[in-house]
């Protein structure tokens, strides 16, 4: 096999795969943020906590009710999405007429509450969640070993991302959604229930975070802080991509994950900050973000 700059291909491919997996989470989470931002004009600071909630609900389903991973993949987004709907109905709805920053502050408070509660009951040490038996083991691709589950994470994320993109960009429902993003009053005048649509959109965005949480549960240990640091990176991803476009969020998410993985190979010390550095560069060159309309 070839060697690139003295890096063995196994190492390079291994880190690329890790990068692609991180990128999957960045993509699904920034997609959720973009969907919510599009219609509600708020940044959902509790997105990381809702991702954590997704992982915990999956763990609880297995631990207390014996419900397996595949059902969790279906049930968790519904449950987490439902908490989002409640949150929208009880709280966020009251803030739409105010400055968008209040939405940020409110969801930050919600994140503190969720994380604090789980820290109280489950500590911070992390709970194990086994890879479902169908996806244990791996494939030898000749140049590297691909664990089945990790391959599945990437495939599932790509499917969900493109499914969401398709619904928003190519269907009638998506057309309503995009219209309401442009002008909610006018869409309401056409007889479409915009408040309901906003509520469900928030629920859907949150459900995406919950889905990402289930995907993450077998890879990362399930712990109350798992979303807190991740969400800050996702914010940087969103700043880099700009939230104007759904496809932009997806592409930026995967791309930055891969770049982060490559940084781990060539300059390990920089891997924690490379996304922030890219953000700084983007702010200098194209402040509105790579795919952004002016913000």
């Amino acid at each position: 096999m070839f060697e690139l700059l003295g890096i063995p291909p196994q190492v390079l491919m291994g880190q690329l795969l890790l990068g692609l997996i991180n990128g999957s989470f960045y993509a699904v989470l920034s997609l959720g943020l973009a969907v919510i931002f599009g219609l509600l004009n708020i940044i959902n600071f509790s997105h990381g906590a809702q991702y954590m909630l997704g992982a915990f609900v999956a763990w609880m389903l297995l631990e207390y009710l014996g419900i397996n991973y595949w059902w969790a993949l279906l049930i968790v987004p519904i449950v987490v999405g439902a908490t989002g709907v409640v949150l929208e109905k009880l709280a966020l709805r009251r803030l739409y007429h105010l400055d968008h920053l209040y939405g940020l502050l409110l969801t930050f408070g919600v994140a503190l509450i969720i994380q604090g509660l789980f820290r109280n009951y489950y500590g911070i040490s992390g709970l194990p969640y086994n890879i479902p038996s169908q996806l244990s083991g791996g494939q030898n691709l000749g140049f590297m070993f691909l664990p089945n589950y990790r391959g599945w994470v990437v495939v599932a994320s790509v499917i969900v991302c493109f499914g969401t993109w398709f619904v928003i960009e190519k269907t009638r429902l998506g057309a309503y959604l995009r219209a309401a993003t442009e002008n909610p009053t006018l869409v309401g005048a056409f007889g479409i229930n915009v408040p309901l649509m906003i509520m469900l959109t928030y629920g859907f965005g949150v459900a995406l975070a919950g889905f990402a949480g289930v995907l993450a549960a077998p890879i990362y240990s399930v712990n109350p802080n798992m979303g807190a640091d991740l969400i800050i990176v996702v914010f940087a991803v969103v700043v880099i991509g700009g939230m104007g476009s759904i496809m932009g969020a997806i592409v930026t998410g995967f791309g930055l994950g891969v770049i982060e993985g490559l940084t781990k190979v060539f300059y390990p010390a920089g891997s924690a900050v490379v996304i922030f550095v890219i953000m700084a560069i983007v702010l200098m060159i194209k402040p509105e973000g790579l795919f952004g309309r002016n913000a």
């Binding site: 968008h100 800050i232 914010f235 700084a280 200098m284």
Partner: peptide, 24 residues
């Protein structure tokens, strides 16, 4: 760098840079 963006983007940018400083 941060004043190049407004509103919630400004909040996210400052948060991200602070996190970068945390890693430093």
């Amino acid at each position: 760098l941060a004043i190049r963006r407004q509103g919630i983007y400004f909040a996210m940018v400052t948060l991200a840079f602070a996190q970068m400083f945390y890693f430093f």
